[in-house]
Nucleic acid binder design. Structure first.
Lengths: 176, 176
DNA sequence: GTGGTTGTTCAAAAATTATTGAACAATTCT
DNA sequence: AGAATTGTTCAATAATTTTTGAACAACCAC
């Protein structure tokens, strides 16, 4: 019966279906996280990588990721670096395997904390400097609008305090 | 004494100092809001426009903004359109003036509400569709990882609920 | 050592996003 | 009516950000 084993590959001459293609489920999950990434202003590739790891039940290596997502090794490496730095992805200490494998951190609180600490906090800090400079300039403003300007600067400082106070609150709300 | 009215302009031949240059205070305020815009993923010009209106004690017209910020009329028009749509800027009904003048909305709650409603809410809504699709796909997943996938999808739905619940909470926290 | 992996870096290319400016409506003034 | 002013739109351009891929370093195994 061997002559019966003719398949589309032999007929068309095309390569066999990529063993690395994503399942529809993976595609959908990746898409979802790509969307999320856009919302928070992160590159698509980062959403892809996290999404794939999130839905995968096995840790994946860099090469796995490159293959499934069909992105360059460079992108994958950089993306993983970022995800590691924010704690969104863990290097899973998987002994006997020559290459590093990663798994997604799935605790919402850990994710949010990492993101806020890395992406928001620095801005809040540099904001303090800017506010100080503003306040100094405000005091030398032309008398005409001085009162108004002083009020606005004060309000900005108030916003800053609220924003700073919001971070812990947010994290708390995201629960254990 | 008219011959005494020689000034730098006549001596150097350059035009008189632009009446439209920003003061250092304005520059600093604009910079601050440009930074803020970047944080929330909005174009720089939008930060500039809002910053200028925020620090200004008088409502400004589109042409004022174009002059002070030295940006194109197109940018200013589009930027104002966005800021209006979000409620960050108000057309001030200033009667007897042929052109529209704008002033900044400075209530933190109003600002945040506008931003969240316009930029975040739509994503939460489309997220629901995506989650539904994911859930459907999960049920057809290969038995191997079915339980795992089901768990992850459930977790995503949980995240979605939390995120949706967070918006009102955020707004409340931003106070009156 | 050589040859085969695994992963990083970074300059160049590609893709995306923002800005410009000119053409166009719509108003208002004379 | 025409001329001047105000504001919008949108295709082209410019600026920015992301992705690629090739060069490289580090590590094993042989």
């Amino acid at each position: 019966m061997t002559h019966m084993t003719i398949n589309a590959t032999e007929i068309t001459g095309s390569r066999p279906p990529l063993p690395s293609a994503m399942t529809p489920l993976e595609v959908e999950a990746v898409d979802l996280f790509v969307g999320l990434a856009q919302v928070v202003g992160l590159p698509k590739s980062i959403g892809q990588i996290y999404g794939l790891l999130y839905i995968s039940h096995l840790p994946l290596s860099l090469d796995d990721i490159v293959e499934r997502l069909d992105i360059s090794k460079g992108s994958a490496s950089q993306g993983l670096k970022f995800l590691r730095s924010t704690g969104a992805v863990r290097l899973c200490d998987d002994h006997d395997s020559r290459c590093d494998r990663y798994e997604a951190e799935v605790g919402l609180r850990a994710l949010a904390t990492g993101f806020l600490k890395e992406q928001i906090e620095p801005h809040l800090e540099s904001g303090e400097d800017r506010l100080a400079r503003l306040r100094r300039l405000a005091s030398t403003a032309p008398a005409a609008g001085r009162a108004h300007v002083a009020q606005r600067v004060k309000q900005l400082e108030n916003w800053h305090r609220r924003a700073a106070g919001m971070l812990p609150l947010l994290i708390r709300f995201l629960g254990k």
